[in-house]
Design a protein around this nucleic acid. Structure first.
Length: 187
DNA sequence: TGCACGATGAAC
DNA sequence: TTCATCGTGCAC
């Protein structure tokens, strides 16, 4: 059986909506320590398309919290939120175009315990925190791999969660998930 | 220097 | 609907 192809710079250096849809069904891998390689299948994501996206942290500019989003694609943007949770994004588009895809839910595949429905729980279960902010996703210990084979899946488009303050940007269907998957946070 | 608030999740 | 809990952004 062929080894799943690790997604590299070229995959992420594309339009964010394409990357978002392409990440559904892919597997997130984090080698937490010796003998603890955690793997989860991505089933729900959100796209944050640029600094003009009023829901994106990129709106605060390259000197702000989301400076990693202004850097090269294929890196992790991990931030701390509500005083207790971390959320993980994969940076997209070309360097200088601040965009990313938020990973909202995974289906446990290997060594993943606890709930994984929602960006905060996902990071907790995968042991992802601020020490991984800015980490290169083209690495052995932390990366995303393409599905082994094309699995038929219907992709649902919905408004993003928790961004009502963003006016018209809150209405756009920039959340994507695999229809019928039981691990989606908010079907 | 202070303060309001959030790309959340759980309890009530 | 409220609350836990704290870093960030911005007003002062």
């Amino acid at each position: 059986m062929p080894r799943p192809a690790r997604l590299g710079r070229r995959f992420f250096a594309r339009p964010t909506l394409e990357v978002a849809r392409g990440l559904l069904g892919a597997t997130l891998v984090h080698q937490v320590g010796p003998g603890d390689r955690r793997v989860g299948r991505i089933v729900e994501v959100e796209a944050y398309v640029g600094p003009s996206d009023r829901a994106s942290h990129a709106r605060f500019g390259p000197a702000g919290r989301a400076r990693v989003m202004f850097g090269p694609p294929g890196h992790a943007y991990v931030y701390f939120i509500y005083g207790m949770y971390y959320c993980m994004n994969a940076v997209t588009e070309r360097e200088g175009h601040a965009a990313a895809v938020l990973l909202r839910a995974i289906e446990p595949v290997k060594n993943v315990e606890g709930r994984t429905q929602g960006p905060g729980l996902l990071c907790r279960a995968m042991n992802i925190d601020k020490h991984l902010n800015g980490h290169d996703l083209e690495s052995d210990d932390f990366h995303i791999a393409a599905p082994r084979q094309e699995v038929p899946q219907v992709i649902v488009k919905r408004p993003r969660v928790g961004v009502d303050y963003a006016r018209r940007w809150a209405k756009r269907h920039l959340r994507f998930y695999i229809q019928g998957n039981p691990f989606v946070s908010r079907p």
